[in-house]
Design a binder for these strands. Sequence first.
DNA 1: TTCGTAACTGCAGACGATTGCATTTTTGAG
DNA 2: CTCAAAAATGCAATCGTCTGCAGTTACGAA
Lengths: 344, 344
Amino acid sequence: MKKGHQVTMKEIAKKLGVSVSTISRALKDSPELHPETKRKIVEMAKEMNYQPNLLAQSLRISRSKTLGVIVPEITSHFFASCISGIQDHANSRGYNVIICQSNESLDQEKANIRTLVSSQVDGLLISLSRETNRFEHLYDLYDREINFVLFDRVQEDIPVSKVTFNDAGGAYQVVQHLLENGSRKIVYVSGPEDLYISKKRKEGYLKALKEFGVDEDQSLIKITDLTESGNIQVAKDILKLNPRPDAVFCMIDPVAVDVLTEWKAQGIRIPEDIALAGFTNNPTAAVVEPPLTTVSQPGYEMGKLAATHLLDQLDGIASEDPISIVLETTLVARKSSQHFEVKK
Amino acid sequence: MKKGHQVTMKEIAKKLGVSVSTISRALKDSPELHPETKRKIVEMAKEMNYQPNLLAQSLRISRSKTLGVIVPEITSHFFASCISGIQDHANSRGYNVIICQSNESLDQEKANIRTLVSSQVDGLLISLSRETNRFEHLYDLYDREINFVLFDRVQEDIPVSKVTFNDAGGAYQVVQHLLENGSRKIVYVSGPEDLYISKKRKEGYLKALKEFGVDEDQSLIKITDLTESGNIQVAKDILKLNPRPDAVFCMIDPVAVDVLTEWKAQGIRIPEDIALAGFTNNPTAAVVEPPLTTVSQPGYEMGKLAATHLLDQLDGIASEDPISIVLETTLVARKSSQHFEVKK
DNA sequence: TTCGTAACTGCAGACGATTGCATTTTTGAG
DNA sequence: CTCAAAAATGCAATCGTCTGCAGTTACGAA
């Protein structure tokens, strides 16, 4: 198999004995061309299976009609959904999408940005890696006037558009739910503390406690590095608390699933002995036993909105002033949180 | 935010009062340049934050250093893993990756191919959609001498390289496992019959039965359209069989999970009343109750191998003759298949 | 001082598509 | 049959980068 040679306008021109400009005009259906010439050219182009070289077009108009996307990891169902939303919307507006993963690494994130910018993407959609606690690379994009939109894992201070969930609100919903079910001693299992979502969900957790008149207790806030072993360690630590807490709210579903698995192995009954809730509504949440109470975050919608806004900016439809779009989440109450009801 | 203007060689040249060619040579560290000139240019380039325009480079050398990937859907964990493997390997070799989803639609698949070819990707990695039962678009690529590799969902007759799992072997493993556990009346739940993996896994199923001297029984082969309602319908149909089968082997995990959920809702005990097994080893398989016996398919490996082979072809390292790479699968025996042991 | 050679740098054309302007061809009127 | 206007087509430059070749310096030797 040789390097596939694409048919160019030049070749059509030679075959038909006309100039390249004429080919170009014919294929754009220009009115200043003789209809017969046009017909012949279009026919020949089809016959030769001509397809325009997008690279050349992009170079000429300095717009690649391509968006760059950077997510921490594609294999996460949530980010895959976001990508799907971005794709579908971008394609419907004639844009291509180049996807990169940062693998939760700041260096990789920077490298991705370099590559995408070099590739002349018209704009970027970025969800920050876990490691990203410095933001020069983003300010650099900003200074260079390259359009980008942050989504889900954002940095709040940068004056660019952002699409986020009401993470605090979602956490509030789920903790409120646990409180309403009678729990008072509620653990919050957080990810790394400088992570945007860790902070926001903690806010919601604390707010709910406060409104129900429950005092904040630092010993009930556990931190995991989000690895499986880290999660299991936290699961064990929680069982050592005395008195044992009524309920545990994990920052993301995978943590809750690991905790659940560990506890089941130890013979702890959920929700009878302790209630459990997660966040994100991963596919796994619905199928574990007992089904996991969680908060639903429509990733597809988020991706679609982020893409819409970026493209609106690029196409000059949206104002260039940055905006912040906040999506609401929905509590998905399942069996894992029915602590006191079951007791009765 | 304006359209980000990228620094070009021309601007560096103007600033330094030299020609563009000199800039180009300096940045390529050409030996025929005065070291001092070179130093100044490199310094200035860094200061001005110069980044080469990949579009222009690609146009010039007629190679975009970009691969196109088409998968049925990104949100499937398996395909996401493949993509991840493709990405990592392609990046390590200096290639970008453009990802498209066909959403299981033939038309979308064709459209994706058109776009990617127009975008001048150097090669394609394709996993076919469910709907793809005609293959003109692939033969067309072949005729145009455009490099592509098929993976997982392949078409066997096209003379291009393919990477697949030993699907028949995997199915054989799992059915053998069920047979060894004492099951004899084993249902195979298949997806649409013209799907590559439906056929291959059926082969393995039948082979295992034959080797254990179990007669093939058409009434034990059920077909689902892979929608949730389709899967549930099959779950119900199986319960109507008289006598009730010992075990059920579902072509892919999501089907098995739907069946499991439906049966649990009906009070059927698994594996006590009936054993169950899936295929793919999705994350959900490990966390359902009972944990699902399945067959592990390393998607990341598959993606990596497919990318490696394609790039080897492109770089002239691999022979241009198509090859077929077959990856082995691993049986993951979990509780859902411990039918007779538990009975004892 | 002059010349040869090496060291350095610039020119121009190419990649493929597009477009303002110039040029050629056609058409019809006088 | 001529000529002007209109219609059809071609020329050339552009986007940013690269490179073969030609041109320009500098330097040492004679």
